[in-house]
Amino acid sequence: MVDLTVEIAGLKLKNPVIAASGTFGFGQEYAPYVDLNRLGAITVKGLTLLPRPGNPPPRLAETPAGILNAIGLQNPGVDYFAASILPYLNQFEVPVIVNIAGETVEEYAALAAKLSELNNIAALEVNISCPNVKKGGLQFGGDPAAAAEVTLAVKNNTCLPVIVKLSPNVTRIETVARAVAQAGADALSLINTILGMAIDLKERRPILGNIFGGLSGPAVKPVALRAVWQVFEEVSLPIIGMGGIFTAQDALEFIMAGAKAVAVGTANFVNPRATIDILEGIENYLRENKIKRLSDLVGAAHCKQ
């Protein structure tokens, strides 16, 4: 037996494979294909205080080895989540991480307070990095001081572990990481999508209704891996690595770069069982290489520079 357990900010996961926010709905959608209880955790779609209709379509464009999305945080709002979705998720044992987004610091604080009153939420993931909304999102993730302010507001309103999700759309991601660490973040998720765009030649206009969208998928993996590496060197918080993880090899690269756990996003669209395939691949790798504990591999690549 290999030991796949992971501990992130006091949160114990039975394995390191997490479903990434926005790509796994609220779990239900993938329940026909994946035994949700086998996952390390599920991060649900980004929630806001009030329901949001989202951006006008088209919302997705395929690009080389990736996709651009501009969903615009369409979600039913935190109250609907609490009343109608959380009870569904509570039938399972899998830890539920709730991703939150707001337009103001107060909104983040109010969301954190509301969610902290509910049962069976494992952690909050604070999305300060959504590239697809006009207000909020990047406005916080792009500025270390604003990022710290949001982190502090959330921390002051919850006793749940607080994971802050960082944007790669910054000059120095380590600076933002350090700022949110000082503000009390318990863990970091990186990366969110990279701002990009695509143009329809026939129509001579941007493909996405929102013009810009967030790039994800295999195309972003090297960028994400670099971000994990840099943050691991400078900040001692646990890291959840994500960005283009499609195979167990990809996941292991992130772990060796310093991630304690990994999140799988776009890969779910290509293979609905991607999370489980990656989990089994990691387990096989450990067994074949006679590594007893996954935690022994975290950051392993740093020792061999």
Partner: peptide, 17 residues
């Protein structure tokens, strides 16, 4: 018809008004 991501209702890419 709309451009899809997940095909299963999870990603909210394929919406129509």
């Amino acid at each position: 018809e709309k451009q899809m991501g997940c095909g299963v209702g999870a990603c909210l890419s394929c919406v129509c008004k």
